[in-house]
């Protein structure tokens, strides 16, 4: 079959274009290849995208992965409850134990008082007296209980047992010695029961109860007399923490007084507030 010259012509045109396109394509391909295989060039292109994405991830991380993470953590906790309990038990246990004993003591004290007064001859006497005198029964009851009282307060440096400040109703004992002995007793008791990692909290001595409150570098010992009630103890606890917070942290103020005198002055203030404040 003879070649049609027109057809030839057409083929030439088409192929020409085809070849040009192929060449262009090949060039592009080699460029691309170059870009892909040369790290620098690739980075130049990809980095902005990655950066954007990284930013995006950062911003949306909790939104994107939060649920899965939470789920996987809670699953791990569920699967290893024993281990978790092991870790948390000492901390939580101590907190709960303390809280519950406190509450139970408070409750039992209340019940005791009520019961004793309700069923005792004393209770009847009060009731009768209240009828006759017209004084509210409650007040008479309260006056019956021996009010707990602060006798002395010591702020003591933790390890050395050196007195940092004191307040005393009456100058009775050698405060340096008492502070030293309290520190030694505390050290002994805490050393003897190291397993529990508990701090010695109070010492009963005849009619006195010495309440101890430990802070990082010092502890406060409050000598109290009278029937120590849980409510009193609670109040004392709270106020002491407040006191330590407020006063001791900015104790080093500009003043000519020695630190011990300053602190003792603050203790006297604390004492007055405690006595005369909200009852």
């Amino acid at each position: 079959m003879a070649q049609n010259p027109g057809f030839d012509q057409l083929r030439k045109i088409l192929l020409e274009q085809d070849r040009e396109e192929r060449e262009e394509l090949a060039k592009k391909l080699s460029e691309l290849d170059d870009q892909l295989n040369s790290r620098d060039k690739l980075e130049l292109r990809v980095d902005p995208i990655l950066n954007d994405y990284e930013q995006h991830l950062k911003e949306k991380f909790s939104y994107l992965f939060g649920p899965q993470i939470t789920e996987s953590i809670s699953k791990q906790i569920k699967d290893s409850q024993d281990e978790v309990v092991e870790v948390l038990y000492p901390i939580i246990g101590r907190m709960i134990k303390k809280y519950i004993t406190n509450e139970i003591q408070k409750l039992s004290e209340k019940v005791d008082q009520q019961m004793e007064l309700a069923f005792s001859w004393e209770g009847w006497k009060i009731r009768i007296k209240a009828w006759f005198t017209g004084t509210p029964q409650k007040e008479l009851m309260i006056s019956k209980l021996i009010e707990p009282k602060i006798e002395e307060i010591f702020v003591i440096e933790r390890d050395s047992g050196i007195v940092m400040g004191t307040f005393s109703r009456k100058e009775s004992v050698d405060q340096d010695m008492v502070a030293g002995m309290l520190t030694a007793i505390k050290a002994f008791v805490e050393d003897a029961f190291t397993k529990e990692k508990q701090e010695l909290e109070s010492i009963d001595y005849e009619n006195y109860k010495i309440v101890l409150k430990s802070f990082k570098s010092f502890f406060i010992a409050v000598v109290t007399s009278g029937g120590m009630s849980m409510a009193f103890r609670d109040k004392l606890d709270d106020q002491l923490i407040d006191f330590a917070d407020k006063v001791l942290k900015n104790a080093r103020s500009e003043s000519d007084e020695s630190e011990e005198d300053q602190l003792s002055g603050r203790l006297a203030e604390f004492f007055n507030e405690f006595e005369n404040g909200d009852k």
């Binding site: 050196i162 030694a184 050393d191």
Partner: peptide, 25 residues
Amino acid sequence: TLIIWDIAGETNQAKIPKSYQLGAH
């Protein structure tokens, strides 16, 4: 003012509660 701690005798100091020793000047 010397606050003097008379600590029970011990052949080995390591056996004494550390808190007795700590804070000593």
